[in-house]
Design a protein around this nucleic acid. Sequence first.
DNA 1: ATGAAAGCGCTAACAT
DNA 2: ATGTTAGCGCTTTCAT
Lengths: 335, 335
Amino acid sequence: MANIEDVARLANVSIATVSRAFNNKPDVSEKTKARILEIARSIGYEPSVPARSLTKRKTNTLGLIVPDISNPFYGEVVRGIEDTCHNHNYNVILCNADNKRDKEFLYIDMLKNRWVDGIIFHSDYFTERHYEVFKGKKIPLVLAGRATKYDILYVAIDNFKAAYDATNYLISLGHERIGIIHGPLNGMEETVDSVDRFLGYKKALKDAGLKVYDELIKEANFKAKGGYKAAKMMLEGEIKPTAIFAISDMMAIGAINAVFDSGFKCPEDVSVIGFDNIDLCEVIRPPLTTIAQPMYQIGAVAAKLLVKIIGGEQVEQKSVLLDHELVVRKSCSRL
Amino acid sequence: MANIEDVARLANVSIATVSRAFNNKPDVSEKTKARILEIARSIGYEPSVPARSLTKRKTNTLGLIVPDISNPFYGEVVRGIEDTCHNHNYNVILCNADNKRDKEFLYIDMLKNRWVDGIIFHSDYFTERHYEVFKGKKIPLVLAGRATKYDILYVAIDNFKAAYDATNYLISLGHERIGIIHGPLNGMEETVDSVDRFLGYKKALKDAGLKVYDELIKEANFKAKGGYKAAKMMLEGEIKPTAIFAISDMMAIGAINAVFDSGFKCPEDVSVIGFDNIDLCEVIRPPLTTIAQPMYQIGAVAAKLLVKIIGGEQVEQKSVLLDHELVVRKSCSRL
DNA sequence: ATGAAAGCGCTAACAT
DNA sequence: ATGTTAGCGCTTTCAT
């Protein structure tokens, strides 16, 4: 592989001049610059990124830790991140941590050793230990997809309000027995999405003067099968819901299937509303009414924010809460 | 950040000895090694990957070029790759190239400059120009998801046979007017998946002595909406199919919706079979019968192969054709 | 078993 | 406008 010295020799200049030419420094004559670039091209030379990283102490690389890239939700977020990085001349190292603490810390360590310029971290949980590890390592960090009480930048949506809106929509359609299928609450110690959404649901019911039935509150694992089981139990119970709010689209889809399998119809007998707005929503029958999260945007904005911080812009960077949106399709109807 | 010199000083040894300790070289006394490691730990030292890459001329990084990570299909493949890389101490740089030639070549260039140890390339097309670029750059390469006539290692399935099997299954159920929704054929110059599958479909019909109706051959873009439109046209035509083979699950799902929207039932009136076996298949109604591609395996095997080549094992590496599988669910019925 | 020193490919002072 | 040189943090001969 050709290196800077080869180019210098062939162009009859010093390696410093070659370096200048490639870094667009002002103090190289246009003529020599052109000659250098041409010679470089002819022998297929381009600067070595690792070598550059070493001297500049900057790798132009972002570390990206997500739970699971095979989940379409994260696929969208990551797509937003990668697109943005590409536009800003960064590359992305992808890490699947499965929401597992050890895997996360292991990856954080690896990324640190790789001198990544920053990390975008996406996980169901952000604990005190996370906070301390990141602080200790002093790596620029942006949390994606969730807010936090720590002084760490994040890009997310207002989960409480989003769930409030979803529930309220059901109420506005005349529903009174509204069930919820939420995710793991984890003792409600941490500010997990699931907790916020659950709280938003309860608040909406209370504000409308409606009763909160314990029988209509079920927990599942964010997946279709979990949603199916939870809905099935609800529908076979004493108090039957006329509407169900599932806090992820996959669970909502499971719930719709449960409605049919229980001998009811959706939306005629039971309305179902989801959360996320993944592509599937328009494809299934009935098309799913849901709360849209700007997944791509979450990724894109997080990446932009991180790149800015790395660039050292002291412009008082702030966390961002993006807007959610109610997308009305056909899975909910007036009571 | 602590470096190797700091550790050396504190441990009263030379940096060479520290290096040996961290590289598990045999010629360091257990005692000093332990001391060095302990001191390193106490000041939070770990070797710099960029510096190491420079001397060793090895980055322990793989470049990964895929069309679009937000597509669940590639999500699975990438998941297989990343898991495998993680197990072999490699990291992965993710690149979305959208099947665009320029973006692909740009990424290949970037990855080369980053001295990645190898590249896994996944794209709808692998042209002569691709072949030449890769040969020119001399980067270890494995093609994922598709075969090629060039002397390049690949990991894929036998698309021709898979399509043959799908069609044959329909035939075995008594169907005679079997439509196909295929992808872009691109003049059929290149060995694209779409072409192989289309050919497999025709061969199965011919082998069974069935007529190939031009009216039952439609092209779409691999997405649900495309499948919907294609199926709609077919169902409204003169010659109505009793079964449809869509060469991707997303198109199959679109087709199922089209069946219902046209006033027919699936599978009673029209059977539909898909291709890929994405998670969705079990979630929609009716659950989709399909040809399963081992997506995770494609990624995992490709990564394993690449890591082996990089390791210099001359063990006559061979391309791999993985098995596909017919997964019978409820979207097809006997005529 | 350990150290000294060269070198990986580049950038960034400091000269001229 | 261009060259010289000292690093960046590490591995790897070559000595001892």
